[in-house]
Write a protein that binds this DNA or RNA. Structure first.
Length: 423
RNA sequence: GAGCCUGUAGCUCAAUGGCAGAGCGCCACACUGUGGAUGUGGAUGUUGUGGGUUCGAAACCCAUCAGGCUCCCCA
């Protein structure tokens, strides 16, 4: 036992119960995506390293990606994100796609980071994007898809909120405060850290990165102004659309949401669990205008977001929203009386399957008590036994494991009786 | 990449330098054509791994692996 080779650090093993939870999320992701007309797609899991190196900082790529040299000497990476693959695939067919394109994907990603709660090295991520439309209403649609997902898994607005901001709005505010362009990255970092730091330390840090007292005061009042969105035509339209889409109770303007400066150019948003149990965002995204130009395509605006399965899974688990795991997809067990009658049980199981039931048959003759115990542990609803008496008369004993009631019926009538008890 | 905490039976955890234990779960039997409940009995184990200190280590020290918290990062 102790000599078992361990799983790779930061990976997760999906036993049937975890697989069930993962597929639950996948199913809800699919439903929310398809409800809005998005098509499922995927890219390769391995990409040339330069696909990421071109866009992201090289240090980040080298430090936080799983990279290796293949046998042909090519530098490749396990994909750390999907957006560059999306950009390339869109650019390659830019002339023939029917815009606006609505695509979603759910697949594995790898990042070489230090594993901790809510973060693993191998995870699944939902990506969903609309490309070729740049209206505030398109932004609203993506936020509504996210809200629809939250609602569909039972995460009410009191449990989760989507915070919305807009980079252009913030830029104009930074302009008004005379914060120079080359300080914007630092200021974004500063804003991101505000919740994590004590206010005195945070203010000291603000002065440290070169803000003057006047700018700091301006920034503080800016970050406390939750009516600021009214000054942005874009956000005003987005919020109007969100109301029409019926998800207004999920969204709230928050000037503290920045999402870095990497490629977001307009509206940005992040969903959080309001209990604060997990401090990481459930999902986050926004509008980007320059994506395709980076991979050689024609300029094309897009909006999208990504959701990892780790944080979402923890929150759903804690909220008790993952449905009860069923140990077996079958609800019927056909027992085996003894060696002589084993073929009868196998034949009966086949008949029941042909009648459309999911049926397990005990794979070897053993004490009936043990077989019923097994059926109970596997949460079977019905057990069917063909003993000598039943076999002699072409019958089967059908027992409801919920009520304990048992009836002997002809084999031909067994399926119907089982179906009745499964209801 | 840095700091801190944790690691004991399948699970949750006791044992603070002196015989490795409890509860739950598991197995057997009571019950040779039938689960859940009950009773009786049984097995839980390289104390994460490797080394060191000691008459003696689960405990103390060093290293290492894994998980967690914080920083960093978050494409």
């Amino acid at each position: 036992m102790k000599n078992i080779i361990q799983a790779v650090k930061g990976t997760r093993e999906f036993y049937p119960e975890q697989m069930f939870a993962r597929n639950f999320i996948y199913g809800k992701v699919r439903a929310a995506s398809e409800m809005f007309g998005y098509q499922e797609w995927d890219g390769p899991f391995i990409e040339p390293l330069e696909l990421y190196a071109a866009k992201s900082g090289e240090e980040l790529v080298k430090k936080q990606s799983f990279t290796f040299e293949d046998r042909g000497g090519e530098q490749v990476a396990l994909r750390p994100e999907l957006t560059p693959s999306l950009a390339r695939m869109i650019a390659a067919k830019q002339g023939e796609l029917n815009f606006p394109v609505r695509w979603w994907s759910f697949g594995p990603f790898w990042r070489y980071e230090s594993p901790q709660r809510g973060r693993s090295r191998e995870f699944f991520q939902w990506n969903i994007d609309m490309l070729g439309a740049d209206s505030p209403e398109a932004d609203a649609e993506l936020i509504a898809v996210g809200a629809t997902f939250l609602r569909s898994v039972g995460l009410s607005p009191s449990l989760t909120q989507i915070y919305v901001n807009n980079r252009r709005l913030m830029d104009s505010q930074f302009d008004a405060l005379d914060i120079p362009t080359d300080k914007r990255v630092d200021v974004s970092n500063l804003v991101d850290r505000r919740a994590k730091m004590e206010s005195a330390k945070w203010e000291a840090y603000a002065l440290e990165i070169g803000l003057n007292q006047n700018q700091l005061d301006g920034l503080k009042s800016l970050l406390g102004n939750f009516d600021l969105w009214k000054q942005s035509e874009e956000l005003t339209r987005t919020f109007t659309a969100l109301e029409a889409l019926g998800v207004k109770d999920y969204v709230k303007f928050d000037p503290n949401i920045m999402r870095g400066l990497l490629y977001y150019t307009g509206t940005v948003f992040e969903a959080f669990d309001t209990s604060g149990s997990v401090k990481r965002a459930i999902f986050g995204g926004g509008r980007y205008d320059n994506l395709l130009a980076d991979v050689g395509g024609q300029p094309l605006s897009g909006v999208g977001f990504a959701m990892g399965d780790v944080v979402a899974g923890i929150i759903l688990q804690e909220a008790g929203l993952i449905p009860e795991f069923q140990p077996s997809p079958a609800q019927v067990l056909v027992t085996v009386f003894d060696t002589t009658l084993l073929p009868q049980s196998f034949a009966l199981a086949a008949e029941l399957r042909a009648a459309g039931l999911n049926v397990m048959v005990y794979p070897e003759p053993t004490k009936l008590q043990k077989q019923f115990k097994f059926a109970d542990k596997m949460k079977m609803k019905v057990a069917v036994t063909v003993g000598p008496d039943e076999a002699a008369n072409g019958q089967a004993a059908v027992k409801s494991l919920r009520t304990g009631e048992q009836v002997v019926v002809t084999r031909a009538a067994a399926a119907e009786k089982i179906r009745e008890w499964l209801k």
